[in-house]
Design a protein around this nucleic acid. Sequence first.
DNA 1: ATAAATTCTTTACGCGCGTAAAAATTTTGT
DNA 2: ACAAAATTTTTACGCGCGTAAAGAATTTAT
Lengths: 341, 341
Amino acid sequence: MADRKIRNMEEFASISGISRPTVSKYFNDPDSVRATTRARIEAALELYDYRPNIYAMNQNRKLTKNLGIVVPLLSDPYFSEIARNLEQRCILAGYSPTLFSSHGDPALEVEALETLRSLKPAGALLAPLGRASDRRALEKFCNDVPTLIFDSSVDEIGLGFVGSDNFQFTAHITDYLCRTGEPPSFFEMKTPANPNAHRRRQSYLNAMASFGHTPDVISIEGEGWGFEEIGRLGGHEALSKGRFSTNTILCSNDRLAIGLLTACYEQGLRVGRGSDCAIRVAGQDGHPHSRYTCPPLTTISHNYDAVSRTAADVLFAAIDGQIEPWKSTRLEGRLILRDSA
Amino acid sequence: MADRKIRNMEEFASISGISRPTVSKYFNDPDSVRATTRARIEAALELYDYRPNIYAMNQNRKLTKNLGIVVPLLSDPYFSEIARNLEQRCILAGYSPTLFSSHGDPALEVEALETLRSLKPAGALLAPLGRASDRRALEKFCNDVPTLIFDSSVDEIGLGFVGSDNFQFTAHITDYLCRTGEPPSFFEMKTPANPNAHRRRQSYLNAMASFGHTPDVISIEGEGWGFEEIGRLGGHEALSKGRFSTNTILCSNDRLAIGLLTACYEQGLRVGRGSDCAIRVAGQDGHPHSRYTCPPLTTISHNYDAVSRTAADVLFAAIDGQIEPWKSTRLEGRLILRDSA
DNA sequence: ATAAATTCTTTACGCGCGTAAAAATTTTGT
DNA sequence: ACAAAATTTTTACGCGCGTAAAGAATTTAT
């Protein structure tokens, strides 16, 4: 590899003996130039390894291939997992995804959207913070950029919504718990960040009513995104004050359940469905970590793959010009039976 | 807020009655213009909320304020945590960080660096994949962009290296384990992705030798970044074949330990330091999740804050022109005593 | 071989902004 | 009120590339 440094397309074009517009055409679609010129360009590419500046490229394109992916919190493995999945789909479809995390902060969420705007994206996949989100900012962004909302819905903005069917989630796992033991108490945060939490509580209430059981909701204090610690502390308090009316606890999400499991451990309570166990604990989400708790956590899992595939497909279709009315797609979860309940 | 859409700085300038170069100057440093003009601009800003295109801005600057942060795998909470920490420091220092994940793939790591190049970054913070990294590509990048390597070192490239003192880590926790019970066996992956693993094994061997104990290294099979599952499977095999020579196991990292804890649970082994426990398990890293395992994991924790602060400071200093010779900074870890060992 | 079709080169402009230099304006000092 | 100093406006070019149009060159068809 010759080590002369190529500064721009102009230089690369002249050094490879091809005109710049043709080189530009090549980079937009290698098949759009004659085979012989393509070969010449690629030969030069071998020698000088030049790459067009992606940001300059997108500056003057009518339709860029940029996509934005915005998630509330990358340090939550649930989001990092789904973000990774989405990124790969975008790349496979020929787009250049850029990932943003709101870090749980509504101001940063708006910031991320503004930065994203500068990329002139062809579209965006956005998982809003939820309750705390700046609705107006999101809506404005959706008006300018084809945006698919996923994970947690915010009004009827954007191209549509793709997420999990939280009613089905909770109904399904509540049903399972009722059939296999005492009906569950419901363990949740009093002021959840995510609107899905409300759906889950409601679904729990519905399910319990339909089975003829008395519901028992324990709403614990705690702000922010440190769900495990919130669950642990709330769990300690609830356990020591005997606030659970049954021996079965359905948590609003897996991270809360993980914290509760720790609280149980710390109180010497054996968790599981064996006769030697004092308590059953179940979560919701199918969090990547739930397999490795002790005991492994029974949960109802998002269909990660289907959610991200559907979300990506809807966005790609919209970018390709297929206009569809706003639509909400909610995918069912899969019950994962493990030892905790 | 008037809802006329501003397309570019030209439009915003004319609508606010200020010339574009002055507006440009304002955005680069609001204090560089007269107070009255600043007020006029900001008044217009209230009305029309325009934002300069960040990518166009950086196109023609000699020194941008862009920074790149590249980590091997965002779905590992260790990296997402340190990435978040670094991002905030960059923002506070007035930079615009962009986060990239290699997703465990060397090709994507190179891709990320190439994309990053297009941003004309003032600098980069890079945590290499390790063994699998394309050394030459990294080196070339470091030659062009002031880059600080963190977490795992690769030769003496870039401005320097900041990470944890893996020798101290393992020596310290090995010492603790020896003093409080049986000397530990060492549980690791045979082909670890991260070079730190080798230092930890070596340090374990050294420590055991210095205490006059016979070392016992169990190297398990497994490729990739699914450490928990690797640890669980390897743990099952090692446990059932009786390959641990003592009742104390020091894992090469926390994620492996988490998998091993699950294996212990599944084999009905009680983990902890109580007399009723069959086995002690310790990890290394201070993984965000280690607090919530059952039992909570004894580990030696990275000084996340100091690592990221030092890394950021070294980079900022270099960007500000302070030329220092290449230097490796390795920070000590803090022993976190919990119930598992 | 010749005409038609395709592809390439040349030329030129645009994206949204940084930045430099000279001219015009405003502010400051006295 | 006046000159000096500080700021702003005007003008112009550059960053790295997309893209359109017209003409030149090459390939394909007959």
